[in-house]
Write a protein that binds this DNA or RNA. Structure first.
Lengths: 343, 343
DNA sequence: TGCTGGGGTTGGATCGATCAAGTGAGGGGA
DNA sequence: TCCCCTCACTTGATCGATCCAACCCCAGCA
């Protein structure tokens, strides 16, 4: 086939083309691809050769139509907050894409809408564009999980169903309390006695979880926590103000923060007062963001095992979509601590 | 329909269901969705009502099969470098997802492979899983663009085809020289005379482009550049070493860097020597990463207009896939400067 | 010889949409 | 009155894979 402009790109080979070349029927080629054990060895070989010769790859749309599965996983991404250290999603997305590939899935991104947290889900679901969803923002009062459950849409959550113990969907989460316990204990081991906490407002389950680890660690050594905690918005400015107040009123020698963003606020306060992080005052953040890794003198931070989270999420997804039985509704993983100059 | 477990989820309504309810033929429903102007007003209204009543949404797989288009755009993501400030992709991905949505496309992520830069493309292409690709890493010697062109695969590059002026594919890029010119001029306006450059090795076209802006700005004011430039790896450690050497040998009062990662290296050196960024020595980075935004005292940085890049990329894509004529092979955008405490 | 059973293979139907061609009513010009 | 054309919609075929039921062939057994 050719026209005046030169060769016309050939249409991709179909299963029928392969069948003809190999001298077998379409069904036999399909079996060669999907159930190779059904074929005799020599037939399989002949079909394989034809597939290679033509460069055949099954047409996704046709397969999806017939099998009612797209092998796509939907992930909503919300605009990253400017001015925060929150690069958590970036790392998670990478891990998820990699883990999905190994399970034969691809990740489809769709944009979030601040007004309506359900926007996007409905359309993708009804048009059967994705097989399942990954839900990441499971904060208090987020209707996604409940809505998806009511629609019987398959999904896995990264984050516990804090406010709904009735929830039956699979989830994977990281033990925040264990993380700040780890951070606090690390500081205690370095000789600190007055360790302050800067976290999020009380209505954040995640914030309260992380805070619990800090107070648990202090109490286990018989140390007081009163007057050493502050709960604010997750911004650098808030962290800065909170740390300034705490330094004046409680004279802590170390800070544990619910996020790297807040920890950066502490570094701001220290810089303003001519104090050196790691020498004069110790600081530990949460999430091990890029910021923590490159800021002088390096910010010690709790690192979430996002690679493992992604693997577990995909595993749960396979259980949901395939026949293998579920292992259980939830998986809780333990974070580690990346120690740097700030402590 | 029900079984012992309760209600069975109803199969999604099809175009035929809508047609029956509205009392028209399938094709009419199809036209109502895709070419509403072909219908008489009252018929259109009746079909719309039926669509709403059933909650109909066209089956993607069936549509893809027939139209030979998936309305998916493939984007390869490579693992983010740990220990750098490079969160560029994260911002770009968000912008791209948003811009794609407005054009009726979704973004499909697939994992990169360090060994083989072509892995992934071939399979998605042959199985007609995506309509086009966005290629982002157009560094020297990367075979992706040439390979995709030889396959006649539609794609748009974020980054100029530096090493191949013959390339005919559409691309969008940001003027790196204009960016460092902007940064350097900003420092000159603040009274700095000895402004050093820390960039990447010579084999990086992007690095040389950015460097050209710095030397251009200095020369336009009749200032010398000799002895003030250093070319190293893109790591914090390299930036630290390079700035230490430059401070000792050339006594610059300001640094312009090819990346925020290198700029963070400079901040390390300053901290070690008890110097204060912005007061004793000025520093400007490149990319306006989250790190630049939160590090004390704030890192002035060249900001790439990634939102606009995404819009242009999608526009080029529409030109490539649809009938509207191309505006031209390349689009070059101008960055801005986010001024913070470090200058 | 004739019947049975099962591995391997076959053709036809099907998934749900769009494309291409066709139908019938109504209007205008000769 | 007849013909042609347009408008608004309908009908049958098709995209490329998988599912389904039937089929063939040959070994095993009576």
């Amino acid at each position: 086939m050719s026209n005046v402009l030169g060769r016309v790109p050939a249409a991709p080979p179909t299963l029928a083309d392969v069948a003809e070349l190999a001298g077998v029927s379409r069904q036999t080629v399909s079996n060669a691809v999907n159930n190779p054990d059904l074929l005799r060895e020599d037939t399989l070989l002949r079909v394989q050769e034809a597939i290679d010769a033509l460069g055949y790859s099954p047409n996704r749309a046709a397969r999806n139509l017939r099998t009612r599965a797209s092998h796509l996983i939907g992930l909503k991404i919300s605009p990253a907050q400017e001015g925060t250290a929150d690069a958590l999603m970036d790392r998670f997305v990478h891990s998820l894409v990699e883990a999905s590939r190994e399970a034969g899935y691809h990740v489809l991104l769709f944009p979030g809408d601040h007004e309506d947290p359900l926007a996007g889900y409905d359309d993708l679901l009804r048009s059967t564009a994705v097989d399942a969803f990954i839900v990441t923002d499971t904060y208090l009062g987020n209707p996604q999980a409940a809505w998806l459950e009511s629609r019987r849409a398959p999904f896995v959550a990264f984050g516990r169903p804090w406010d709904n113990p009735e929830a039956r969907h699979p989830w994977v989460d990281v033990d925040g309390a264990a993380g700040s316990d780890l951070a606090t204990t690390h500081l205690l081991d370095r000789g600190h006695q007055r360790i302050a906490w800067i976290g999020w407002r009380k209505d954040s389950f995640i914030g309260e979880d992380r805070r619990a680890g800090w107070s648990r660690a202090l109490r286990s050594r018989g140390l007081p926590t009163t007057g050493l905690a502050s709960r604010v918005e997750d911004t650098v400015a808030s962290g800065r103000e909170a740390s300034a107040v705490l330094l004046d009123e409680a004279q802590p020698t170390a800070f544990v923060c619910a996020s790297d963003t807040l920890a950066m606020g502490v570094l701001h306060t220290l810089a303003e007062r001519g104090l050196v992080a790691g020498r004069d005052v110790a600081v530990v953040g949460f999430d091990d963001s890029q910021v923590a890794q490159v800021v002088p003198p390096g910010l010690t931070s709790v690192r979430q095992p996002l690679e493992e989270v992604a693997v577990q999420v995909v595993k749960a997804l396979e259980g949901l979509l395939g026949h293998p039985p579920l292992v259980g509704p939830g998986v809780l993983l333990t974070p580690s601590l990346a120690v740097r100059g700030s402590s």
